[in-house]
C-alpha cells in the first residue's frame, strides 16, 4: 500500500527517524502500535480458529456444573448452564470480531463512495446527499438496530446492517472533507487534462491517496462497532443465544454477577475491552500519521 509522502512536508528529524522504522503498514505507529497490532492479530486468529481449538463443546450444557469454578482442564470454570467458559470465549470470538469487521467494511465502502462522489460532483448533488446524510445522523445506531431486527429478524445480520447504515454519515462526513482537499490538488487537474475518466481518477488517484485516512478511520470505527454490537447483543437483538458471543455472554452472565459468580461477564467483558483498546490505540496512531503525512 502506498501512502502519501510529500517531500515538501516538514517533519522534525526525531519524528522522521521514528517514522522510518517498523513494518511498512505500521510505519510511524511506534512500539504501542506494533503491540496493538500483535494483540489484534491474535484476536483475529482466535476468531478464525477459536471454535476448532476450543477444548470442549461450547454449547454442551450440564446443569450440575453450573457456576463451578476452575476444574480439571476447564481452566475458567463453567457458566450458569454448566457450559465450559473458555470454549465459549474462544467460539464467541468469531461473531464478536466478524460482526464489527462487516460493519466497518460496509460503512467504509458506503462512506467512501458517497464522500468521493459528493466531493467530485459538488453542486446540487452534494447538497442533496449531504442533507440526506444529516437526516440519517438523527437516528441513533441502537434505534436503527431495533427497527432492523423487527423488519428482518433478530440476529447478527440485521444488527450489522443497521450499524453499517448508522455509521455511514460519520464516515462520509469525515472523508468528504479529505476528498475535497485532495480534489483541489493540482495533480487532479493535470489528470483531467490528460482526458482520464472521472471514475478512473477517483479510484486510482483520489481514493488511493486517501487510503491512510480511510484505514485510520476504519480502525477507530471498529472499536465503536464492537461495543455497539455487544450492546445490541446484550439487549437480545443481535446474536441469539445459545450461540456464543462476547456481548451475549456479558448479558447472560448478569444473573451470575448477582449470585457472586462474575466470571462469565468479567471474562467476556475483558475480551471486548482488550480488543477495543488495542484497536483504538492503533487507530489513533494511524490517524496521527495520516494527518502528519497528508497535511
Amino acid at each position: 500500500m502506498s501512502l502519501v509522502e510529500l517531500p515538501t512536508t516538514a517533519v522534525p528529524p526525531a519524528r522522521r527517524r521514528l517514522a522510518g522504522r517498523g513494518l511498512p503498514l505500521l510505519r510511524g505507529t511506534g512500539l504501542v502500535g506494533h503491540l496493538c497490532a500483535i494483540v489484534l492479530l491474535g484476536a483475529l486468529l482466535v476468531a478464525v480458529f477459536g471454535a476448532a481449538i476450543a477444548p470442549h463443546d461450547p454449547d454442551l450444557t450440564n446443569l450440575s456444573f453450573a457456576f463451578v469454578g476452575r476444574f480439571q482442564d476447564h481452566y475458567l470454570g463453567f457458566d450458569s448452564q454448566g457450559r465450559d467458559l473458555l470454549s465459549r470465549l474462544l467460539a464467541g470470538a468469531r461473531t464478536s470480531i466478524l460482526g464489527p469487521l462487516v460493519v466497518v467494511l460496509l460503512s467504509m465502502l458506503f462512506g467512501t463512495v458517497l464522500a468521493i462522489a459528493t466531493a467530485w460532483k459538488g453542486g446540487r448533488f452534494d447538497t442533496i446527499v449531504s442533507a440526506a446524510l444529516d437526516v440519517l445522523f438523527a437516528f441513533p445506531a441502537i434505534v436503527l438496530a431495533i427497527i432492523a431486527s423487527v423488519v428482518i429478524e433478530p440476529g447478527l445480520k440485521a444488527a450489522s446492517l443497521a450499524l453499517s447504515v448508522a455509521y455511514t454519515p460519520y464516515i462520509a462526513r469525515v472523508l468528504r472533507s479529505a476528498a475535497l482537499r485532495e480534489r483541489s490538488r493540482d495533480y487532479i487537474a493535470a489528470l483531467e487534462v490528460q482526458g482520464l475518466r472521472a471514475w478512473v481518477i477517483c479510484v486510482r488517484h483520489l481514493g488511493r491517496n486517501m487510503l491512510p485516512i480511510i484505514v485510520a478511520q476504519g480502525t477507530i470505527l471498529f472499536g465503536y462497532a464492537m461495543v455497539d454490537l455487544a450492546a445490541i447483543s446484550f439487549l437480545g437483538l443481535g446474536v441469539q443465544p445459545p450461540q456464543a458471543d462476547w456481548g451475549v455472554m456479558v448479558a447472560t452472565g448478569q444473573s451470575g454477577v448477582l449470585q457472586g459468580y462474575p466470571m462469565e461477564s468479567l471474562c467476556a467483558g475483558l475480551c471486548i475491552v482488550v480488543v477495543v483498546i488495542a484497536v483504538n490505540l492503533l487507530g489513533e496512531r494511524l490517524s496521527d500519521r495520516s494527518t502528519l503525512v497528508t497535511r
Binding site: 502506498s2 501512502l3 502519501v4 509522502e5 510529500l6 517531500p7 515538501t8 490538488r185 493540482d186 495533480y187 487537474a189 493535470a190 489528470l191 483531467e192 487534462v193 490528460q194 482526458g195 482520464l196 475518466r197 488517484h205 488511493r208 491517496n209
Partner: peptide, 24 residues
Amino acid sequence: ALRSYRAEVAMVFQDPRAHINPVR
C-alpha cells in the same frame, strides 16, 4: 467528446511537482 478533445489539446503546467501525483 471532451475526452477526445483533451487528447488533442495537451497542457504543460507551471509547477510540475504539484501537478504529478506524488505517490505514483
